[in-house]
C-alpha cells in the first residue's frame, strides 16, 4: 500500500496534474517526473500536452513501447500473453453470462413494491449472490494470472529483465510517478509485467482515469448506455491494491446515469463497503496514510441511490 497518492479524473480539458504534483513534490525538487502513458498504446509518446501542463521535466517510461520491443525479441512470451488474453476474454464472457442472470432479478426485486418483510431478505440474498459472483470471477482471473506466471516466469526472462533494469534506473532518479489513463487492461498488464510499482516502492503516485483504476483493489468496467450488449457493470480483475476502499469510476458523467436511483443504488450496494468515487473532470482524491481526503466537489454514489460529496 502506498503512503501517498492522488487520484484524478480525466485530464484532457481541465488538467490539474500540476496542482497535484505541487502537493506531493517540493518546488525546488529538480528530479524529473516519471510518466506512464502506456494506456494510450501506440500514442504513448504523444505526451507534449502533459509536459507543457506540468511545467517540470518529465521522463516518459515508455512502458508500452518497451513491451512491444520485448515481443519482438521474445516471441514465446508474446504468444503466451496472447493466449492469456484469450482466456481472460473467455472467462469474462462466461462471467457476463452469469451476471446477467443475477442482475436482472436483482433489479426487478428493487423495483417491486409490497410486503417489505418478504422483499427485504430476498433483495439482501440476491445482492449477496452478485457479490459472491464478483468475487468468484476475480479469483478465476487471478488464477489465470498465477498459472501464467508459473508457466512462463515473465519476470525472469532476459528481455524483460533488461527493460526492468532500465526502468529501475529512471524510477530511482524521479520525484514522482504519473500514471495516465487509457486502455485499462493494457495498462494493468504491462505495468504488472515489469512489477513497476515494486520497482518504484512506496513513493508518491498521481494517477488519473484508467491510471487511477489500476491503483485500486478492484477494477470495475462500466457503462450504463452502451450501443450493444449488456449495461451491467463488470468486475475486470484485481488492481494493484495500492490504495484501499475505493472503486474508481472515471468519466462518470458520460458513462453513468446518476439520475437513475435504482442503478445507482445497485452499484453502490454491490461494491460497498468500497466507495464508488465519480472521477469526472476536476475530481481529486488524496490518499494519505491510509485515509482519503477528497477535494470539494468530488462525488460518490450512495447506497440510497443518489450522489453525495465523498466522505459526507
Amino acid at each position: 500500500m502506498l503512503s501517498s497518492a492522488i487520484l484524478l479524473g480525466p485530464q484532457r480539458h481541465v488538467p490539474i496534474v500540476r496542482e497535484a504534483v505541487a502537493a506531493l513534490v517540493a518546488r525546488d525538487d529538480r528530479r524529473p517526473l516519471a510518466a506512464v502513458t502506456a494506456g494510450w498504446e501506440e500514442r504513448e509518446s504523444e505526451d507534449q500536452e502533459l509536459r507543457e501542463h506540468v511545467q517540470r521535466p518529465v521522463v516518459n517510461l515508455e512502458v508500452w513501447g518497451r513491451v512491444e520491443r520485448i515481443f519482438e525479441r521474445d516471441r514465446d512470451l508474446l504468444l503466451a500473453m496472447r493466449e492469456r488474453h484469450d482466456r481472460l476474454r473467455a472467462v469474462q464472457e462466461l462471467y457476463r453470462l452469469r451476471l446477467g442472470g443475477l442482475i436482472e432479478p436483482m433489479r426487478e426485486l428493487m423495483r417491486r413494491a409490497g410486503d417489505e418483510a418478504l422483499l427485504a431478505p430476498e433483495r439482501e440474498d440476491a445482492m449477496a449472490m452478485v457479490k459472491v459472483l464478483d468475487e468468484q470471477h476475480q479469483r478465476r482471473v487471478a488464477a489465470i494470472h498465477a498459472e501464467f506466471e508459473d508457466r512462463h516466469r515473465p519476470g525472469e526472462r532476459a528481455a524483460v529483465q533488461r527493460e526492468r533494469r532500465d526502468l529501475q534506473r529512471w524510477l530511482a532518479s524521479s520525484s514522482c510517478l504519473l500514471v495516465a489513463g487509457g486502455h485499462v487492461s493494457v495498462l494493468l498488464h504491462r505495468l504488472r509485467l515489469f512489477d513497476l510499482f515494486g520497482l518504484y516502492g512506496d513513493r508518491p503516485v498521481i494517477a488519473w482515469s484508467a491510471g487511477a483504476m489500476v491503483l485500486t483493489e478492484r477494477i470495475v468496467l462500466f457503462h450504463d448506455d452502451p450501443p450493444q450488449g449488456s449495461a451491467h457493470a463488470e468486475v475486470m480483475e484485481a488492481g494493484f491494491g495500492l490504495v484501499r476502499g475505493l472503486v474508481a469510476l472515471p468519466h462518470a458523467r458520460h458513462r453513468l446515469q446518476t439520475g437513475d436511483a435504482e442503478r445507482v443504488q445497485l452499484m453502490a450496494q454491490r461494491f460497498a463497503p468500497a466507495v464508488c468515487a465519480l472521477l469526472d473532470k476536476g475530481a481529486r482524491l488524496d490518499w494519505r496514510a491510509g485515509r482519503w481526503q477528497p477535494a470539494p466537489g468530488t462525488r460518490q454514489l450512495t447506497t440510497a441511490g443518489g450522489t453525495a460529496e465523498v466522505g459526507t
Binding site: 489513463g181 484508467a210 450501443p227 463488470e234
Partner: peptide
Amino acid sequence: LREGLSWLFPGPLWLVYE
C-alpha cells in the same frame, strides 16, 4: 448508424478510460 456500425465494428468502450 450507431447501432449498425457499433455492432459491425465494436469500439473499446468498456476498456478505455482516458
